[in-house]
Amino acid sequence: MSKLRVVHYINQFFAQIGGEEKADYPIELREGTPVGPGLAFTQAFGEDAEIVGTIICGDSYFNENIEETTKKVVEMVKGLKPDVVIFGPAFNAGRYGFACGTCAAAVHDELELPVVTGMYPENPGVDTAKDKAYVVVTKNSAADMRHAVKVMAPLALKLARHEHVGASCEEGYINQGIRVNFFEKKRGSERAVEMLLKKIAGKPYETEYPMPSFDRVEPMPAVKDLAHAKIALVTSGGICPKGNPDHIESSNATKFGEYSIEGVTDLTEETFETAHGGYDPSYANEDPDRVLPVDIMRDLEKEGVIGKLHELFYTTVGNGTAVASAKKYGAEIGKRLLSAGVNAVILTST
């Protein structure tokens, strides 16, 4: 029997082309020899399957050209006639995860091929594909590659062979929201009592009917009188005073910064910089207004378009930062802004 055909999508980093300075690397197809994590997959496949092509694309390039790049990925995959397509794994890399998820969903929809990817559950890419792709749960860093491949490779083989795939909790992928009927060994009343006893004893138990979480916030009313409003700037792009006095981490930030821009009319290379490690910092370091537009806000303040620019700005690094941390910072920043009489917020992200 001939080997099953696998196409693999990876970013510029895993293709060993470069880091953030190469994140604008355009999409490319390499046929034949596996690249980067493709080697580990090839090893795991053994004689059963082979990677016939690797699609490589820079993370910024993808996210700045989403529609056309997705189309190209679908075309490239189509030309290679695979049995299954693997994306990543992307772990907790946001742009990479988003690229993997978006392309996986498109390949699933347009070519009706099975797709497998791997992500940390907080990756924003999960939501783009979890009902279409098999998104294997990984840890939040590439150190988890070995485990990710160990779960993803056999799952990909099963899908390529159209074999039965077990429930998400058995196979290690994220729940797709699909229900399948099956016979339990124990009857419902017995399972319910067991669960209740575990709950009373404070032991971990698994519900059979998890509630969906809808975490949406109602939009606040619009600003009525802009000319008398106090506007604050907040960013996840890591802009901070030169030297990063509070040592905000370049990834997985454990804090946010509150800094004064009283009397500052323009952020310059000499006075401010970015602490962010998830994008090429050269443009932001050269002119931090490109991320935090203090210069424009001062002009608008002088012209009377806005009432006042709040004299403090808030900043953190949104790079692999845990959702729980971001939530905490947001709540605290909101409280401080409200008590300072701020009326509205412009939040910039990179």
Binding site: N63, V217, M220, V234, A331, G334, A344, I346, T348, S349
Partner: peptide, 17 residues
């Protein structure tokens, strides 16, 4: 962060790529 700041009672606009 956008959501939590808005939840505290302020309108937020998210400028992002």
């Amino acid at each position: 962060m956008v959501k939590e700041i808005e939840r505290s009672g302020l309108p937020v606009v998210h400028v992002c790529t």
